[in-house]
């Protein structure tokens, strides 16, 4: 069992690519003042992120078995989304103002912190990170 597992790494790479592509596409849509295209990009981005999260998360649960109630994948998503957002801003892609990004980072960060607290509680009922009821299944 590894906190930094292969599947988490694969998820991070895919999420990084998808998020970078989304930010670039959003930059183009806003540049052309196309609201419909921007909303469509966001919907596609959401679906892709949901799919890769589900795909790699499920494989990680089976192969790695770390009972973290999805916290590692949540943390990776947070770092990638916020990181790429800030990076896109400094590259010069216009997607959203830094202030809006800061609000997102803080509010999402609070959600992440709550998830972390639940993660710590979940860890208390595990044996070396494995859910007790799943060890001898």
């Amino acid at each position: 069992m590894k906190a930094l597992s292969l599947r988490l790494g694969q998820f991070a790479v895919c999420a990084l690519l998808v998020t970078a592509m989304f930010r670039y596409a959003l930059n183009l849509c806003i540049g052309k003042d196309s609201m419909l295209a921007a909303v469509s990009c966001s919907v596609v981005y959401f679906c892709l992120m949901y799919y890769i999260g589900y795909h790699f998360g499920e494989k990680d649960a089976v192969e790695n078995g770390y009972h973290d109630i999805g916290f590692r994948f949540h943390l990776a998503t947070y770092v990638i989304c916020i990181g790429v957002g800030i990076g896109a801003h400094y590259i010069g892609w216009y997607t959203e103002p830094l202030k809006a990004m800061a609000i997102t980072a803080i509010s999402w960060g609070i959600g992440l912190l709550i998830h972390f607290i639940f993660f710590l509680f979940a860890q208390k009922s595990t044996i070396k990170g494995y859910a007790r009821e799943e060890i001898f299944q």
Binding site: M1, V62, E63, G65, K128, Y130, I135
Partner: peptide
Amino acid sequence: YRNLRKFQHL
């Protein structure tokens, strides 16, 4: 393999 890997970590 999956079970043995788990037992090995434990």
